[in-house]
Design a protein around this nucleic acid. Structure first.
Length: 811
RNA sequence: GGGCGAGUGGCGGAACGGUUUACGCGUAGCACUCAAAAUGCUAUGGGAGCAAUCCCGUGUGGGUUCGAAUCCCACCUCGCCCACCA
């Protein structure tokens, strides 16, 4: 008997699939298309992470099943290769990022191939390929043309030790992601993308009636919270004693207009323009300026730590008028009010807002109740209630009052109904080398000039040094012969933009690049029909951590490209699911420093790709985080060994019949088919195991049953399934077979284990015919010795009968 | 502070109103072997008992129900994401 030699088997089929271009998707095939997508990896120096491969295995199983169901499946792969770690490595070693990327992608490719994923390698993409980022830049220019890419002074996170500006996502707990040093907010001109212009559609299209996407509910919820829509009103508070000849006011945004009679002061953010505009009127300007300076100096870390303790200073000498009651209220500046949300100013209602309550207590300010229902001597009452102390609005419910007060506001032109979003525009500039250059030229005469589309791509220049400059500009700023160019408009001296794009740029449209990858990615009309054929993506799986990053960004880009007529669907993804993280064996997040990283090559060498794939599916619920267990994989290897032994030692023939096994097969087909669709891979594997345990007991197996089993096993363990399939004498690959259907008639049992309960406790079980009546069940139950013993002395009050399940006798 | 999710054997987990612990790991005993590994067979929640059998068990405390791991209420613990969003 030949032993299960996974090394030999896996090498053989790997070669076979590659040589026969097995998994290439056909453009415009007559079969129905199915586009399934995984998040393409960032090719880091550490090699493939098991976190990647668990979700890749899952999608690979789905892709393989779909092919067998008759679909023309696009299951592509590529590299999201721009990014900081590669640049940092280049800074350290002096090796060009291009070379590092090449080396890393080679490793990743080899590792992915070793695991037998059915990717269409003919469509491999790489975001750092100039032919690719040409189109990333082209999309940027379209944003620019429509006014959705613009420059703005923005506070960025400045890392003192790296001398570099960091994006928000590069700052963890106020510290620099790469060196762990403290960061501070600094103002810098940044390129922005106006994602907020799409906030409303990004929100509405999630659900009917406007849209309706098949995303996991928690993903929708997270996107909704991130977009953070809130309805309210903007109210204009005039300054009561403006400088002669001027008229000044402060606009505040509130969702609780009903509490406005409880407003006892205003608070503005330190950056608010009113401070500059009324400098001459502010009597304690020195104190105010000092406070503002202190706030600026606060690092992100300090701000986070001090979040609870509120500070502020009154702007003495100016007051504002509440339009509802013409009352004069003092104005404070405080950094708990954010410049970037709403109008950068709030009306403070200490009686009905916790933050205002804290602040008012600390500075001894008036707390006036205007909504009844709480006890404001103890704490702020933040719920809705009945209005009091509110003039003509007294007695109304909060809800009614908001309506009426908004009407009053609009009629008297003191403000209007407004919708606010938490979502901010996307800071699109990075001061790094290893990213797509932003295709803009700055000319002294003409100002900002976009690079002409025919001059794309703006290629990254080859350099020796990648360190950031002392000024915080991108390393590109040091490369004189690249920076200095002629202005495309006037021909005069001009400079290139030296900021590059964030690594989210290339991944915001990569799903469009796969269909086009054989045509140089050309996004224009000539290729429209390719996108029309393949889009939208039918199933996209990825990590929860990308819900508000890649997932939201790419929905935004797709919508924009839809608006300008490049793509044919306004949403890129029909369905989105997510996977749980794989933790280290110690239950901690896997990281090199903790030394708990699982090495793919070792696992494949010791257990084989099939066992590895199977274990990743079997280890636990797909959507949940789960620690790696190096012993667990022994079990799936043992299982494959059993499958192999059965194929080698049992008498498998089409002359054999086995009704019982046939029934089990059909149950298994049903369960595996359904579990794959629901991503319950762990239970799918367990029922494959149950089937094999049964086969192992037998000496003779019907060939047809065994073959069907191999087909449903094949997406999980493609190598061993192919090998056994071939050994059975089949000439064509197992993946050319169609997915088996179960026969509903065959899975019905004709007997069942009836549970007999007495007073709700299980006292006996008995195997009986299916579909017996209550009367029959009672008779059977009462004839049992055990039951008789329990009933002895008691009287039967009632029996509860659940057909085909149990009978409960109450005495 | 807010949002999402999870607490079941020694461990990963099944079950998601109806026999708690499917499947796998681990452990113990047995078989094969000179021996080991591999493999196979048997057992394996806790307690009492020679046994049949009984009692107790799904984070804690209540509730609904003939019946609750599952539904409802309150609480505790853990994980992830967001966080002064007016």
């Amino acid at each position: 008997m030949e032993k299960y030699n996974f090394k030999k088997i896996e090498a053989k089929w790997r070669k076979y699939w590659e040589k026969n271009k097995f998994y290439q998707a056909e453009d415009f095939s007559k079969k129905p298309k199915y586009y399934c997508l995984i998040e393409f990896p960032y090719p880091s120096g550490e090699g493939l992470h098991v976190g990647h491969t668990r979700s890749y295995t899952a999608m690979d199983i789905i892709a393989r099943k779909r092919r067998m169901e008759g679909y023309n499946v696009l299951h592509p792969i590529g590299w999201d290769a721009f990014g900081l770690p590669t640049e940092n490595y280049a800074i350290k070693t002096g090796v060009h990022p291009k070379i590092v990327t090449k080396k890393n992608t080679d490793t990743f490719r080899r590792q992915l191939k070793s695991l037998g994923f059915s990717f269409d390698w003919s469509r491999e993409i790489n975001t750092t390929d100039p032919e690719y980022y040409k189109w990333t830049q082209w999309i940027f220019l379209q944003f620019y043309k429509k006014g959705l890419a613009y420059k703005k002074k923005m506070p960025i996170n400045w890392c003192f030790s790296c001398k570099i500006g960091l994006a928000n996502e590069e700052v963890i707990d106020g510290r620099c992601e790469r060196c762990g040093g403290e960061t501070e907010k600094r103002e810098k001109e940044q390129w922005m993308l106006a994602i907020t212009k799409y906030a409303d559609r990004l929100l509405k299209d999630l659900d009917p009636p406007a849209g309706g996407l098949d995303y996991l509910e928690k993903i929708k919820i997270q996107q909704k919270n991130w977009i953070g829509r809130s309805e309210g009103a903007v109210i204009k508070f005039s300054i009561s004693n403006p400088p002669a000849g001027g008229q000044f006011s402060i606009n505040v945004f509130t969702t609780r207009l009903d509490t406005i009679f409880g407003c006892t002061y205003l608070v503005v953010a330190p950056e608010h323009e009113i401070i500059k505009n009324l400098e001459l009127k502010i009597k304690n300007l020195g104190e105010v300026k000092k406070y503002i300076d202190q706030t600026k100096k606060k690092s992100d870390l300090q701000r986070t730590e001090l979040a609870k303790e509120k500070t502020g200073v009154e702007l003495k000498g100016i007051k504002a008028i509440n339009p509802f009651n013409n009352e004069e209220v003092p104005i404070f500046v405080a950094d708990y009010v954010l410049a970037s949300y709403g109008t950068g100013a709030v009306m403070a209602v200490p009686a009905h807002d916790e933050r205002d309550y804290d602040f008012a207590k600390k500075y001894n300010l008036v707390i006036r109740e205007s909504v009844s229902g709480g006890n404001i001597t103890k704490q702020a009452f933040v719920n809705d209630g009945i209005l009091i102390n509110s003039g003509q609005f007294d007695g109304m419910t909060s809800e009614k009052a908001r309506e009426e007060m908004t009407k009053w506001l609009e009629k008297n032109k003191f403000g209007k109904k407004t919708i606010q979003y938490k979502l901010r525009d996307w800071i699109f500039s990075r001061q790094h080398y290893w990213g797509e250059p932003i295709p803009i030229i700055h000319c002294n005469k003409c100002g900002e000039v976009p690079v002409s589309e025919k001059d794309l791509p703006v290629k990254l220049p080859d350099v020796k040094k990648y360190e950031p400059t002392d000024t915080g500009e991108s390393p590109l700023a040091n490369i004189k012969n690249w920076v200095n160019v002629k202005c495309p408009k006037c021909g005069g001296q001009a400079k290139r933009e030296t900021d590059t794009m964030p690594n989210w740029a290339g991944s915001s449209w990569y799903y469009l690049a796969y269909p086009l990858s054989r045509k140089n990615y050309k996004l224009q009309t000539a290729n429209h029909k390719l996108l029309k054929y393949w889009m939208p993506i039918d199933w996209y799986n990825g990590g929860m951590e990308h819900t508000t990053l890649n997932l939201l960004y790419s929905r935004f880009w797709n919508k924009f490209l839809y608006d300008i007529g490049v793509v044919s669907t306004s949403e890129p993804y029909k369905k989105r699911t997510s996977h749980g993280m794989i933790l280290g064996e110690d239950g901690e997040k896997m990281s090199k420093s903790k030394g708990n990283v699982v090495n793919h090559d070792d696992v494949v060498a010791n257990f084989g790709a099939d066992a590895f794939r199977l274990y990743q599916m079997f280890m636990g619920p797909f959507s949940q985080a789960i620690p790696w267990d190096s012993r667990g994989i022994e079990g799936t290897k043992r299982f494959l060994g059993k499958v192999w032994d059965i194929s080698q030692t049992k008498n498998i023939s089409d002359k054999i019949n086995n009704k019982e096994l046939e029934k089990l097969l059909h149950k298994t087909i049903k369960k595996v088919s359904e579990d794959i669709e629901d991503m319950n891979f762990n239970t799918a594997v367990s029922c494959l195991m149950i089937f094999i345990n049964k086969c192992y007991e037998l000496n003779d197996l019907p060939k047809e049953i065994w073959e069907k089993f191999l087909i449903i096993l094949s997406p999980f363990a493609p190598f061993v399934a192919e090998e056994i399939w071939e050994k059975l004498g089949n000439k064509k690959s197992v993946f050319m077979e169609s997915w088996p259907k179960y026969n509903p008639k065959l899975i019905i049992d004709d007997v069942f284990e009836m549970v007999i309960q007495i007073n709700g406790k299980v006292r006996d079980t008995v195997s009986v015919k299916k579909d017996i009546s209550q009367k029959e069940a009672e008779d059977i139950a009462l004839s049992r010795e055990k039951v008789k013993n329990w009933i002895k002395g008691g009287k039967i009050k009632k029996t509860i009968f659940v057909p085909n399940r149990l009978i409960n006798i109450l005495i």
